[in-house]
Amino acid sequence: MGIWERLDLDPAIHRMVALVGGGGKSSTMYAMAKQAADSGRTVVVTTTTHILPHPGLPLAGNPAQLAALLQAHPVVTLGAYDSRGKLTGAADPASCLALADVVLIEADGAKLRPLKAPADHEPVIPTACHAVIASAGLDCVGRSIGEICHRPERVCALLGADLDHSITPADVAAILSSPLGGRKDVGQAMAFRCLLNKADDDARRAWGEEIRALLARQGIHSAITYYREEERGGLCLF
């Protein structure tokens, strides 16, 4: 079963998807891009924040370049380099829907931390999105908020806990499902899914199943994943 099916999303319907939250966004974005391309679709990978460029994908700096590159390549990155060598958005992602079948957007940053609660200006989800995926890394469970979370003060406020509090599966479910957490700025018409990543041992898989059950009680579909070293960041896919 592919990543689209595991997330209960359909690239023919959910053509524009934003990824938010912590560990797993980039790897999942490229896995989704690969599967969509393998099904004969053209795909744009872009950001409304910042991403590292994928070394195996062509880069378009504007919509005209994007249109030309999509004639020859099934997956193209759209972005412009900033002073740090990262990519920022180079056009309104909604405009890409006229050029490609699928648009995938990294719409949040977590500084490589597995769990976060967003600041006031985060995430940056285009209003035209059809779906949002909120991600968390299962390696956060059992570790303190201060040690493992991005924007730990926001996590503390959301959970009503202090920095020394050890993250539980219930905490992860609470953060992902909260309108102050993973569900922040998700429109009513957008499908909402959760991704529980880094399930690479028995303990983490058990935590993932516990979180998935808690989310299911709220009517939220989630997928449990892990990526091998060579799959992380989609490096082996393109």
Rank of each mutant, 00 (worst) to 15 (best):
A18D: 05
A18G: 13
A18R: 02
A18C: 14
L19V: 11
L19H: 03
V20E: 02
V20F: 13
V20T: 15
G21C: 10
G21W: 06
G22T: 15
G22M: 05
G23S: 09
G23V: 10
G23H: 07
G24H: 06
G24C: 03
G24Q: 08
G24I: 14
K25G: 00
K25I: 08
S26H: 08
T28F: 00
M29F: 02
M29D: 01
Y30E: 01
Y30P: 02
Y30S: 03
Y30F: 14
Y30T: 04
A31K: 11
A31W: 10
A31I: 07
M32S: 09
M32F: 07
M32V: 10
M32P: 09
A33S: 06
A33T: 08
A33F: 13
K34E: 15
K34N: 11
Q35C: 10
A36W: 13
A36D: 14
A36H: 07
A37W: 15
A37R: 13
A37V: 11
A37T: 10
D38E: 13
D38Y: 12
S39V: 05
S39M: 12
S39F: 06
S39I: 00
G40D: 06
G40S: 10
G40H: 14
G40M: 09
R41F: 10
T42F: 08
T42K: 15
T42W: 06
V43C: 08
V44N: 07
V45Q: 06
V45F: 02
V45A: 02
V45N: 04
T46M: 05
T46N: 08
T46D: 01
T46Y: 02
T47V: 04
T47E: 02
T48Q: 00
T49C: 01
T49I: 04
T49A: 00
H50W: 04
H50K: 13
H50N: 05
I51R: 06
I51D: 00
L52K: 07
L52Y: 12
P53M: 05
P53W: 07
P53E: 03
P55W: 00
P55R: 09
P55A: 05
G56F: 01
G56Y: 00
G56I: 02
L57V: 10
L57W: 10
L57N: 10
P58E: 15
P58Y: 11
P58G: 14
P58I: 13
L59P: 14
L59S: 12
G61S: 09
N62E: 12
N62P: 08
P63Q: 13
P63V: 07
P63I: 10
P63S: 11
A64I: 15
A64R: 15
Q65D: 15
Q65H: 06
